[in-house]
Amino acid sequence: MNIQSINNNQNNPGFKGIMKPLVKNAGLVAALAGSSVVAQKIVMSGSEAVVGPMIDIGVGKTITKITDEKDGKTNDSSKVQAIRTFSQSVGGTIVGVIMRLSCIALMTAILSKIGQSAGKLIGKEATKKDGVFRQIADTVVGDKALNAYEYEEKMKSWGKSTGGGIAVLIMLVTNFIIDAPFINWINGKMTNIVNNIQTKKQNKIAQNNASQKPKQANKEVG
C-alpha cells in the first residue's frame, strides 16, 4: 500500500451520521463490540430467511411474466424453492449457532485452564531479559500480569476468535451429517404446512363459489 492510498484511507469520510446515535448508546456499543460469529450467523441467516424466499418468488413471477409461460411451472417451482430457502436458513441457523456456541465455550474453557498454568510461566519468564514470553508479557495472559476481570475478558476474546475458527472447520463435516437431513426434515414439515394452507384456501374459495351459485339462481328466478 503506497502513502497516497494510506492518506486516502485516513481521510475516508465514513458514513456520515450513522455512528452518531450509536456512540451515545452504551448498551448498543457493548452488544455490538461483544458480538461473535454467533450473532453474525443469526443476523445473516435471519435476513436470508426473510429476504431469500421473497427473492425466489419475485424471480419466479418475473420469469413467468417475461417468458409468458402459460402452465406456470416456474412460478410453482419458485414457491417450492422459497420454502427450501426458508428451511435452509432456519435449519442452518439452529445447527450453526449451536456449533459455534459450543466451540467458543469449549475453547474459552480450555484456554482459561491452560492459560492459568501458563500464566505463572509467563510471570517467571517475563522477569528474565531473554525470557521467551518477555515480548508478550504485557498483552498476553498471566495471573500475575492481569487481574481477574482483564484475564477473563482476554480469555473470552481468545475463545471467540479461536472457537469461531474451529467451528468453521468442524462445520465442514456437520454440514453433511447434521444440516442436510435436518434441513430436509424442516423442508418436509414446511411443505406440508404450506400445502395444507393452500388446500384450505382452495376449499374455502370452492365453498364460497358454491354458496354464491344458488343465490344467483334465486335472484334470476325472482
Partner: peptide, 23 residues
Amino acid sequence: IISILKKCNPDPTKAGNLLLNLN
C-alpha cells in the same frame, strides 16, 4: 498454546475484521 495465543492475540478494535475473515 502460548505460541498460538501470540499469533491470534485479538485486537479489540478489529472485532469486525475477525467476523469478516471467519465468514
